[in-house]
Design a protein around this nucleic acid. Structure first.
Lengths: 99, 99
DNA sequence: TAAAGTACTTTGTGAATCAAAGTTACATAT
DNA sequence: ATATGTAACTTTGATTCACAAAGTACTTTA
């Protein structure tokens, strides 16, 4: 592939999905509210990006409780990890030719 | 800034603009047609992204000739270089927390 | 009982993306 | 002189995306 952008993953063109993935690479499980605060998003905006990532099999959802409050957490899947690492590698390749 | 995506530059959310910039970081001057072929784009699509980059002061245009044919080339500006490097640094920061 | 929290979904708007077609200007081939 | 070609766009139109705001269903706390 000569085209330097050909290996970038379209799902990760979105800064928000990029942010979610990078948070989930480092934290085993993160709640909806923590993601919302870390990324400074409205509920709806976060929810829609999370569902895009979920539809693509990049993350999985755990519905649980903290005390008696509902608590939804998200974690990365193997496929998500692979796709994200692939995207980062593509970014690196693109940039490596600059040095 | 705690928000890991807060320092990313919106202009570079686009893979195409990212590609243009990375090519221009490495090549002093690149023609419209070379960019078109490298990035596998239609005329219109490339032209519109180039004008976005130009409007933002990230690249400059040189209209010249090769023999008697018109030849437009593009090169990065100081501001473009700074913005692009800033974006890459923000990406790196975001990713560094993963290691 | 009222207010607030969680995690959404729905709605609506504006912006972005892109291909395709049209345009302008010059060049070359017939 | 006419037709074809190439470069570099601009315009058009359709589709998709992003996002805020409001609405929903359920529970909890004051």
């Amino acid at each position: 592939m000569i085209n330097p952008i050909g290996n970038l993953n379209k799902i990760f063109d979105s800064r928000i999905r990029l942010g979610v993935m990078s948070i989930l690479m480092v934290n085993e499980e993160v709640s909806f509210n923590d993601l919302k605060q870390m990324l400074e998003l409205t509920d709806g905006n976060l929810a829609s990006h999370l569902s895009t990532l979920e539809e693509n099999g990049f993350l999985k959802v755990h519905k649980g409780f903290v005390g008696r409050k509902t608590n939804t957490t998200y974690s990365i899947t193997k496929a998500g990890e692979k796709a994200f690492k692939g995207h980062l590698a593509a970014l690196e390749n693109m940039i490596r030719s600059m040095e």
